[in-house]
């Protein structure tokens, strides 16, 4: 993956999707995962639910919202990173929920989609506000690890490494490749009976380019 543009904060209008357990099959059905690209998934986002003409994300007053306020266990299910690409291509820069599927959260941060976990009461308050006022705006600050909106302020935690990568716009693979010496040392001490899927090969080393 190439280096990203550094992200330090995001401010945008919020829209609430008040459903628990929004799984990645809802975020993007498997039939859209046949594509070979990392972008161009806007049409796939919530494709099943979008058949309902009243679906909240399609209401004109929420057009242009960039912060999705979800509920419990958002992004549960499949490991498909397409779910993150679809949210991003659909215009979202952040998802605030009371919990996330583990794989989804990791995928989200890697792609610069801020998956922010807040207590249930905070998420409910944000959802209420976004429903009452489509212009309701939320700010997520990565440096201070805070969410501010409508005069309220909440703190959140993040995986330190992922936060640093994002704020500095670093390519994670390049960072790991800088550890080549440690990886090679580990490899030379591995047990000889460990499995191999093909003929043994000498490690192919890529240059660490930060």
């Amino acid at each position: 993956m190439n280096a990203l543009t550094p992200i330090t904060a995001h401010t945008g209008r919020a829209v609430a999707l008040r459903r628990d357990q929004v799984d990645t099959d809802q975020i993007i059905p498997a039939s859209f995962c046949k594509r070979l690209t990392k972008s161009g998934y806007a049409d796939a986002l919530f494709a099943g639910w979008r058949k309902d003409p009243g679906f909240v994300l399609d209401r004109p007053e929420h057009a242009g919202a960039t912060v999705l306020v979800a509920a419990r266990n958002f992004g549960t299910g499949s490991s498909r990173e397409h779910a993150v690409w679809a949210l991003r291509d659909g215009g979202f820069a952040a998802v605030i929920a009371s919990s996330f599927g583990d794989i989804f959260r990791r995928n989200a941060w890697r792609n610069g989609l801020l998956a922010v976990e807040l207590p249930e009461e905070a998420v409910a308050a944000l959802a209420d506000a976004a429903e009452a006022d489509p212009g309701f705006t939320v700010t997520i600050d990565l440096a201070g690890l805070t969410v501010t909106a409508g005069g309220d302020r909440w703190e959140f935690t993040a995986n330190e490494r992922q936060r640093r990568l994002l704020m500095e716009g670093l390519d994670e693979i390049a960072v790991t490749l800088a550890e080549d010496e440690a990886i090679t040392a580990y490899e030379s001490a591995r047990h000889d009976w460990l499995p191999a899927a093909g003929p043994r090969t000498t490690p192919a080393r890529s240059r660490a380019r930060l």
């Binding site: 990173e81 993150v84 490494r161 790991t176 490899e187």
Partner: peptide, 19 residues
């Protein structure tokens, strides 16, 4: 299970940074 970004990371490094 991992996402596609981690697939790329493991292909290139045979490792993953994990909490």
């Amino acid at each position: 299970g991992v996402g596609t970004g981690d697939v790329e990371h493991v292909l290139a490094t045979q490792t993953m940074p994990l909490a």
